[in-house]
């Protein structure tokens, strides 16, 4: 168990390191003049010179990367003689345009994305697994065909389309709900939920389709396995067979998929945020691209990447816990 965790932690850290190298190379080494991208739109010559100095673009590449990595692990100072900007660990970069560390900008928006992701996950799990199980058990009926149609349609709808249409109908014409604007959970739980209801539903409808399909096919596959025949041959009831034996095997891949999807969403739900006008990590990224604020762009990319790598490790761990054949060796 400990050995498994150690090995997994080791490989996770390696992947993170590789990710940081790739991100560095793509965003700082490849562009013609990264300092200009850091300085942003409407940057004058004086400011550009300062930024260039602070970044140390005249240093060899590996030294620049080392500073970048050092910043991540132990913090760094952007030093231009008398003008020193400090960025404490873990330093995901410093936005000279807004004059604040990138990590702070991200964490300020994390509660929103976490609320969005977790709430939506609850809804899509209920919808997706429920529908998938029903479809697998009632094979060949009208219900199954309808469900197949709905899930295919759901998969064909990008989240911004669903969100847009839901908002059009629920807020615009029917006026059931106010136009969403984020209210923190700690401030007013009821307002938090009612404002997030539509974003949750839009995200969940899109995701649930994939989960329903996966649950259905996994359950059908498990139900066709020999050990299910054994259970039948030994007089076990259908309920016990499905709930006790078939569903467990069928849901193992679903759990790992969930870990991955949550990890992805915590790095920002760009489209959902954009549709509902939420100021989350995804929105921050898009805005930073438009204003050309490179440190923020890089910081978010790295942050989202780390979340996915960690989610990957968690998914593997869950898989090993759920399936005795994989085991924690």
């Amino acid at each position: 168990m400990i050995r498994f965790l150690l090995r997994r932690a080791f490989s996770t850290l390696t992947v993170m390191l590789v990710l940081s190298v790739v991100v560095y190379l793509v965003f700082y080494a490849a562009p013609h003049d990264p300092a200009r991208l850091v300085c942003g739109k409407g940057c004058d010559g004086v400011r550009l010179a300062v930024v260039r100095h602070k970044l140390g673009t005249d240093l060899p590449l590996w030294q620049q990367y080392w500073q970048f990595l050092h910043g991540l692990l132990a913090g760094r100072d952007f030093d231009a003689g008398t003008d020193v900007t400090h960025c404490s660990a873990p330093c995901f970069g410093y936005s000279f345009q807004t004059d604040q560390p990138v990590l702070g900008m991200i964490t300020a928006r994390l509660p929103l994305d976490a609320s969005l992701a977790v709430g939506a996950a609850v809804v899509w799990l209920l919808l997706g697994i429920g529908a998938g199980v029903l479809a697998a058990l009632r094979r060949g009926g009208i219900g199954e065909r309808a469900l197949t149609g709905v899930t295919l349609a759901g998969m064909a709808m990008p989240v911004f389309l669903v969100g847009l249409l839901l908002m059009m109908v629920c807020c615009g014409y029917l006026q059931w709900l106010p136009f969403p604007s984020y209210v923190p959970l700690t401030q007013d739980p009821l307002a938090w939920a009612s404002n997030l209801a539509l974003p949750w539903l839009s995200l969940a409808l899109v995701m649930a389709a994939a989960y329903a399909r996966m649950t259905r096919s996994a359950l059908l596959e498990t139900l066709a396995e020999d050990h299910i025949r054994t259970a039948r041959a030994y007089g076990l009831g259908e309920r016990r067979i499905v709930l006790g034996h078939a569903l467990r095997g069928a849901l193992t891949p679903v759990i790992t998929l969930l870990a991955m999807d949550l990890g992805g969403l915590l790095g920002g739900a760009q489209l959902t945020e954009s549709v509902f006008g939420f100021d989350g990590i995804g929105r921050l990224l898009v805005e930073s691209v438009n204003t050309i604020d490179l440190p923020v762009v890089v910081g978010i990319t790295l942050f989202a990447g780390f979340f996915i790598v960690i989610a990957n490790a968690v998914a593997d761990l869950l898989y090993a816990l759920a399936d005795p054949r994989v085991g924690l060796q």
């Binding site: 990710l19 760009q270 691209v289 978010i300 989202a304 990447g305 996915i308």
Partner: peptide
């Protein structure tokens, strides 16, 4: 494992 959309936007 890369965050595809994030990377695409950033690029």
């Amino acid at each position: 494992a890369f965050p595809g959309l994030v990377f695409a936007i950033s690029l």
